[in-house]
Design a protein around this nucleic acid. Structure first.
Length: 341
DNA sequence: GGTCACCCTCTTAATTTGGC
DNA sequence: GCCAAATTAAGAGGGTGACC
């Protein structure tokens, strides 16, 4: 498991994905566009404008931060332009803190952030207030992993529950819960407790990406965990995606963000690697004692031989289905099958 | 030194329950 | 009916004692 930052074909792959999204002709949500909609500034967006909208996705400019929010606004949809200048969260909250002395915060934002939505099309207006929730089966979520794999962002920012659910339902967002739809407030609370960004594991399980979960800030009071999340986002934006809070602790965490469980199997494997791929029992015992990683109860040497036996098809105690890790050189002398110098 | 049987603990996933 | 929390069940790993 590594933090991946290689740049191979990045631009080419991203340009191809952006082009494919923009030319998507599935026409999701078009059945929702039955009446004109009025925006805050009393602008009226006609049904025709809504129906003429095209899937909306950011331009590729070599950005390092992947920002995923719920869906384009109706005006962004009608204008086919991301609403960086109209988004109150960005303009009123983030930009003044990230770019306090800059006259062109939008340009700075666009330079470092690639903006994607859980729905590339406007999902229509709900009967009550607000827009419809994006359909979790929407094609847009299909692009998340394609974009992540191609872009290999320094940092991912997920805004809102719909952006996080794609990763919680597949258990790829590092959380203390196994629930597939944990409430956003719980995710924010856990992120605050960890005092660092969370992690997303790539689809193939080989890469980890720092991930900041945000709640779309309202004008109401902001909780401590929301403030912490916004602070993380500000830090990431100021440093082009680098928070410096995760990579230093990577060796001690697994993909769920919890301490790795150090088993006897892992200890014995590491000891044999240290001893050159094979060793006699006494040398193995001595090395385990020297390392001091394990709790050495009175019967610990029996546990070592039992564990080796359970994972070696050369013994009668090998358990079918276990990985066949060790081989017997002679009685009391063991080797690692896949050891390579 | 190695094997076996038994039991305990922990993790994970599935199911049930209760509140809204 | 939906969602979240609690409960239950299954499986794997770990620990121990007895025996060869």
């Amino acid at each position: 498991m590594t933090f991946d930052s290689c740049e191979d074909n990045r631009d080419k792959k991203m340009a191809e994905i952006v082009d494919r999204i923009r030319n998507c002709n599935l026409g999701c949500y078009r059945h929702e566009y039955t009446a004109s909609l009025r925006t805050r500034g009393n602008r009226v967006i006609s049904v025709e404008e809504l129906k003429n909208g095209k899937p909306l996705v950011d331009d590729w400019r070599g950005q390092n931060i992947l920002f995923i929010s719920q869906a384009p606004s109706k005006q962004a949809w009608a204008d086919n332009e991301l609403s960086s200048r109209d988004n109150s969260f960005l303009v009123n909250l983030l930009f003044p803190k990230v770019y306090p002395h800059d006259d062109s915060p939008v340009e700075k934002w666009q330079k470092s952030v690639f903006w994607l939505h859980t729905s590339n099309c406007y999902p229509g207006k709900a009967n009550g207030e607000g827009d419809n929730a994006p359909d979790p089966e929407d094609c847009a979520a299909v692009y998340f992993d394609e974009v992540i794999n191609a872009m290999k962002p320094e940092c991912i920012v997920l805004m809102g529950k719909y952006a996080t659910q794609h990763f919680t339902k597949s258990h790829r967002l590092s959380l203390s819960t196994k629930r597939t739809k944990p409430p956003l407030k719980d995710i924010l609370k856990y992120q605050h407790e960890c005092q660092r960004p969370l992690l997303i594991t790539s689809e193939d399980g080989t890469c980890l990406y720092e991930t900041i979960v945000l709640k779309h800030a309202r004008n109401k009071s902001i909780s401590t965990s929301e403030k912490f999340a916004i602070g993380l986002a500000i830090k990431a934006l100021k440093n082009n995606g680098k928070t410096g809070l995760v990579k230093s602790i990577l060796p001690s965490i697994d993909t769920k963000g919890t301490p790795l469980r150090h088993t006897w199997l892992k200890e014995i494997t590491e000891v044999l690697e240290t001893l050159g791929g094979d060793a006699k029992n006494n040398a193995i015992y001595r090395e385990i004692e020297n390392r001091g990683n394990m709790e050495l109860k009175p019967t610990w040497k029996q546990i070592v031989t039992k564990t080796i036996g359970l994972h070696s098809s050369d013994t009668g105690s090998y358990k079918e289905g276990n990985p066949d890790i060790f081989y017997m050189i002679e009685t009391g002398h063991w080797g690692l099958r896949n050891f390579q110098n």
